[in-house]
Design a protein around this nucleic acid. Structure first.
Lengths: 104, 104
DNA sequence: ATAACTCATAACCACCGAGTTATAGGTAAG
DNA sequence: CTTACCTATAACTCGGTGGTTATGAGTTAT
């Protein structure tokens, strides 16, 4: 399910762009490019991938585009993480129960 | 920081192996290979990457190796997610405060 | 109307990594 | 001791993708 999410966040440059948007809020492509360390087309491409994954929204304003992180963008990731750790804990609880029963 | 974590979990086959270990607990390489859909060397390679990222542990037993997910393997991922959503919320709170002050 | 600016797309290149087959190392079984 | 089994490593191929430069589309400014 969160396949595209992991793939999208796997690239360091792209994740750095996303993190900056999380920290500082809405940014133009130019502002993001200034601190990205790569060319403007590369930034635009990354933003396209982020948008495709639902991690970013774009807002047109004149000749510049503003990007921002929509609310709840990372909810699927948080859900997946909790689900996986939940499996671990349930197995652990099962083991605890077993040990408890063996103790009696 | 969680660079290797994201890169490791980005591949679907590798993530499927990890998920299976989360759900069903410790597994041998053979058991994992049976349901992986790829060859045994591929599975061994994925397990090596997962181990490098601290997402699995290996236990030698005779001529077969058992892999499992250590406790807290996904904590860095959960931390990163919470940090990012935290940035979002704090910015939102700041906006709320601003609107509240403007309302007076 | 023309020029300058912002961003997206096109076309291309180079590299990384996931997959394969073949094989080696080590352990149990005959 | 030899054979069969389980896993890891080596060597290689190939597709995906992140980077670049060049350019186009749309918008503001002169």
């Amino acid at each position: 399910m969160p396949d595209m999410l992991f793939k999208t966040l796997a690239d360091p440059t792209r994740r750095a762009i996303f993190e900056r948007l999380c920290r500082d809020g809405e940014q133009t492509v130019g502002a993001l490019t200034a601190r990205a360390g790569v060319s403007q087309p590369a930034v635009s491409k990354h933003l396209g991938v982020l948008k495709q994954a639902g991690l970013v929204l774009d807002r047109q304003a004149g000749r510049q585009t503003h990007y921002s992180v929509p609310r709840g963008a990372l909810v699927p990731l948080a859900d997946w993480t909790q689900e996986m750790t939940g499996f671990w804990e349930s197995r652990f609880d099962g083991l605890e129960d077993l040990l408890k029963r063996m103790d009696q």
